[in-house]
């Protein structure tokens, strides 16, 4: 059953303009961070959104929770559209941020932070608030005495658990984890990922996990959507997408991921350059300037996100890159 459906959502940020432009009434240039994205999330699944910095994955998440307002499109939650005013019922969609140190109020104790949320939303009668706080600490596997602590006394992993408890306090159905493990050490990262998996099973949560780390997504997510320059270029079930990527960008991302067993030499992806600025979007397919398979069609016509062999992919030549294999896909670059 579909829990969340994103339809044709577009987010733009207006850019500053020069004094001359202001006098001549030239319209403000806009940076399009998310460009006509469609995405649906099934109840109970973990959906991974991957991409490099600047691809719009965090902006998409912020649009879903209502922290930025899209210029077009709509978000359907359980079949009803969400509005973007402050009083709409977005309590059931909660977010866990990347940096737990800067997203927790340093001057409040953990207990008062959680209690304030529960009281504001009238989720428990006042006499039960304390019990609920203790219950939340149990959920995220932290000792109850930490309720009296301030965030400064906790380690990075413990703070991230508080970030998760804070989100769970509002009893959400959908949790959006925006790079929630990126700032943590590997051993702590594993325990936070395990916690998210446990919560999905115990509380029947749906999770959108936003990450730049393909390995994390590979191990945790049921479905994956790959973003590039504000567009979703490919999405599908995790195992299938990783074993036979349909979009050349996905192929390149996988080839670029460091291989633990040393099977891929460094420089394997043969991908030149870096993602272009969203202010200077290339015409046609956004990936065409870096794509080894690009031809004239790719440079002029934007490929739509369409089903090809059971995979949603936005490419004129789906699966061509993985059939050729990453190593022979590109011309030798001398590196």
């Amino acid at each position: 059953m579909t829990l969340l459906e994103i339809r044709d959502i577009t987010v733009e940020f207006p850019q500053p303009r020069s004094f001359v432009d202001m006098l001549t009434r030239t319209p403000r240039p806009a940076l399009r961070a998310v460009d006509h994205v469609d995405l649906s999330v099934e109840r109970g699944e973990i959906l991974g959104v991957v991409g490099e910095s600047g691809c719009g994955k965090s902006t998409l998440a912020r649009a879903i929770v209502g922290l930025v307002e899209p210029v077009g499109g709509e978000v359907l939650y359980d079949g009803t559209p969400l509005t973007f005013d402050r009083h709409s019922n977005r309590r059931r969609i909660q977010m866990v941020f990347q940096d737990p140190a800067s997203s927790l109020n340093p001057s409040m104790t953990i207990g008062s932070m959680l209690a304030e949320l529960i009281a504001y939303h009238h989720l428990r009668p006042p006499e039960q608030v304390q019990d609920r706080c203790e219950e939340l600490m149990d959920l995220v596997n932290l000792p109850r005495r930490y309720l009296a602590y301030r965030p400064m006394r906790l380690s990075g992993g413990q703070r991230q658990r508080i970030g998760i408890a804070r989100a769970l306090a509002l009893e959400p159905d959908l949790l959006i984890a925006d790079e929630s493990v990126a700032a943590l050490d590997v051993s702590v990262q594993a325990s936070i990922l395990n916690l998210l998996l446990d919560l999905r099973d115990d509380l029947d949560l749906t999770i959108i996990l936003i990450s730049h780390d393909l390995a994390v997504v590979r191990n945790v997510c049921d479905h994956v959507a790959v973003m590039y320059l504000g567009n979703i270029v490919e999405s599908g079930p995790t195992a299938e997408l990783f074993s036979s990527p349909a979009h050349p960008y996905t192929t390149a991302l996988l080839a670029a991921a460091p291989s633990f067993d040393g099977s891929r030499p460094p420089g394997n992806a043969r991908l030149e350059g870096e993602p272009p600025s969203p202010l200077a979007r290339p015409s046609g397919c956004p990936f065409n300037p870096r794509c080894p398979l690009a031809d004239d069609e790719c440079r002029t016509v934007m490929p739509p996100l369409a089903i090809s062999d059971g995979r949603l992919v936005a490419c004129h030549k789906p699966f061509a890159s993985s059939r050729q294999g990453a190593r022979t896909a590109g011309p030798p670059t001398g590196e």
């Binding site: 780390d213 670029a256 460094p266 992806a269 870096e274």
Partner: peptide, 11 residues
Amino acid sequence: DVTVQDQILGL
């Protein structure tokens, strides 16, 4: 980023 990391490691 991962694709840039790959380029730098290759270099």
